[in-house]
């Protein structure tokens, strides 16, 4: 017959449990301490690395891109917060915030004429003009601008990036600074209009195999959004896009 547990046994069990718990806490503390040590070490190394390459990161767009990619691979986003020690140390955050603010300024200043749709090329040209003459101000890559714009997403859907070609080539990218979605049809029309800054219903019908109604509908929507202008003085009605109009892009 099994002996039924007595008061003593229960007491013993409780003492053992307490001891285990104590050990567990001790172990946890150890691990935490180790982690903290490692983090501290990591941080020191990082600081050394960062301060050593600080200028390089700030001045060299290629290096900056590699640095960004390295950060991403270990799950760190140096731009996540302007208070993070990364940005405090490097001023990297500031660098992108600065660009982001200038992007907003340029987009606002030009939206009057281009309906809030600007090519990355023009945007970069205007940014460089707006920034100081110092070399490190001038060296901003398309990649930097795209990164800065992506940071603006936290402010809502105000800024979006539209790829006109299926490649990763960032020169064929449009930045939209007015809320409102451009759907796939709109993008198709923009792709066709890009080279000459204008298009016609005939061209669209021929290239996209759409019917009249669809072409007209999409063009009307682009007019409604202030992206397209109508020219009624050519042989067939022509639809123009200031965003792609070279004399405008090259103007101060």
């Amino acid at each position: 017959m099994r002996k039924r547990p007595g008061i003593g046994a229960i007491h013993k069990q409780r003492v053992e449990q307490e001891r285990f718990r104590g050990k567990a806490t001790e172990l946890q503390d150890n691990v935490f301490e180790q982690m903290a040590n490692q983090m501290e070490k990591f941080r020191t190394n990082l600081e050394t690395f960062a301060s050593k390459h600080r200028n390089e990161i700030k001045k060299n767009p290629t290096f900056r891109k590699q640095f960004q990619e390295m950060c991403a691979s270990i799950g760190v986003d140096p731009l996540a917060s302007s208070k993070g020690f990364w940005s405090e140390l490097l001023g990297v955050g500031d660098f992108y915030y600065e660009i982001a603010v200038q992007v907003i300024e340029v987009c606002m200043a030009t939206s009057q004429r281009n309906g809030g749709l600007i090519t990355l090329g023009e945007l970069r040209q205007k940014l460089i003009k707006a920034r100081g003459k110092a070399q490190h101000h001038q060296n901003i890559s398309n990649d930097d601008i795209i990164r800065a714009i992506k940071k603006l997403k936290v402010l809502g859907s105000g800024f979006s990036i539209i790829s006109l070609k299926d490649t990763q080539d960032s020169s064929d990218v449009l930045i939209r600074s007015i809320p409102g979605e451009l759907n796939a049809d709109h993008t198709e029309v923009l792709k066709i209009a890009e080279a000459q800054a204008f298009t016609t219903i005939e061209t669209l019908k021929c290239k996209l195999k759409w019917d009249d109604v669809r072409c007209q509908q999409i063009l009307n929507e682009l007019i409604r959004d202030g992206v397209a202008w109508v020219d009624g003085q050519s042989t067939t009605k022509t639809y123009w896009f200031p965003s792609f109009f070279k004399p405008l892009i090259n103007e101060g």
């Binding site: 409604r224 109508v230 020219d231």
Partner: peptide, 13 residues
């Protein structure tokens, strides 16, 4: 800009 010489249908534009 050719359409500058045609009154635009979109009132904002």
């Amino acid at each position: 800009f050719p359409p500058f010489f045609t009154l635009q249908p979109n009132l904002d534009t």
